[in-house]
Amino acid sequence: MSAAKRILILYTGGTIGMQMSADGLAPASGFEARLRAQQALEEDGDQLPEWRFRELLPLIDSANMTQGHWLAMRAAILAGLDEDDCDSVLVLHGTDTLAYSAAALSFLLLGLPQPVLLTGSMQPAGVDGGDAWPNLFGALRMLQLGQRPGVQVFFDGRLLHGARVGKLRSDAFDAFTVLPRQRHGQRAEQLPATLDHRQPHHAVRLAVQPLYPGLGAEQLRALLDSGVAALLLECYGSGTGPSDNAELLAVLSDAHARGVVLAAISQCPQGHVEFGVYAAGSRLQQTGLVSGGGMTREAALAKLFALLGAGLCQAEVEHWFALDLCGELLD
């Protein structure tokens, strides 16, 4: 946890650098100059670590985030660390999908020895009393103090685990928090070489489906027949579902038999999956579902993306999905 001496700042867009356009606030270039001008006004500006600035073009509103952007962020981070000789990374990101990207980078950068922080803001830089400059310079100061390897989010004065964070509010500066979900499971003793941050990844087709009263087998079949490699099923409570619907259970079993990865998390904000508590959960598990424990939707989706995107087969994905890789399952 040595203090940062040269930081890579990767600007992806988002509210923090937006400026007014004819259609409303939109991502804008030129943020590096604004940042340097503001640093000169900061009380400790001349004491902050040196930094290098990169833009991930095209800049986007994070509502437009895709897996391709996650892969581009990973590539830009690795290139910046190598080419600019940086020892820490700060990613400037929009808030709508910041938790998804933090989780994705947590799994795409497994084994990276340098710390990575993500931050953004609820209001654009330059707004009086806004949170943009406090978040950005607060993140730089955190890196200056020295941070452990891995991905974290810095927001509203707090450091938050990248694979546990979630956005709870859309209209307040303290928009993000670590969700209080029960954490249990087994930690992976050693990561396979295929999951190392240097290994290539590719995009995969994923789906998320919450269970709800009235979900029909034909609806679930249409989703699973659309070519998805994995389905993240958001179950009730501790991992229950409509166990008396034989047709729906058969749809899940058939999909699993042909190689689709089936994973389960709880819909409850403070929930976790424990299939054996209820018979309804046990019957659901028998279709091939693997438990996501107390993982958030963001973490579980990102983990499936990283495992399948690394080229792992169904059995390998299920094995590693159930183990803690970077703190997503265990404190």
Results as ranks from 00 to 15, higher is better:
M122G: 04
Q114N: 12
G185N: 03
D85H: 15
D128Y: 01
L98H: 02
L109P: 11
F137E: 01
T95D: 03
S101F: 10
L143C: 05
D196I: 00
A103L: 06
D156A: 15
A103G: 12
G111P: 11
W133I: 05
V151Q: 10
T177K: 05
V116D: 02
M142V: 12
L117R: 04
S121N: 09
Q186N: 00
G162A: 11
Q152W: 03
L159Q: 00
Q123M: 14
L145Y: 03
M142A: 15
A104H: 06
L109W: 12
D85G: 13
A132W: 01
D85V: 14
A102Y: 07
R158D: 13
P124F: 04
T177W: 10
R141T: 06
D171R: 11
A99L: 03
L118M: 11
V116E: 09
G185A: 06
L98R: 02
H184F: 15
L136W: 01
V89Y: 04
R187F: 02
G129F: 03
D87P: 08
L159S: 00
H161K: 14
R164E: 03
L92V: 13
D174Q: 11
L179G: 00
L160N: 03
M122L: 09
D156F: 12
R148V: 12
L117W: 06
M142G: 09
A125K: 00
G94E: 06
L109N: 12
V178G: 02
T194N: 05
L109Y: 08
G138D: 06
L168Y: 10
D87W: 09
A163I: 04
P149S: 01
M122W: 02
G166Y: 03
S170R: 07
K167E: 04
A203S: 14
L105Y: 11
F155T: 04
W133F: 13
D171I: 00
S106C: 08
C86G: 07
G162P: 12
L90D: 05
P134W: 07
A132D: 06
T177V: 14
R183T: 09
Q144F: 02
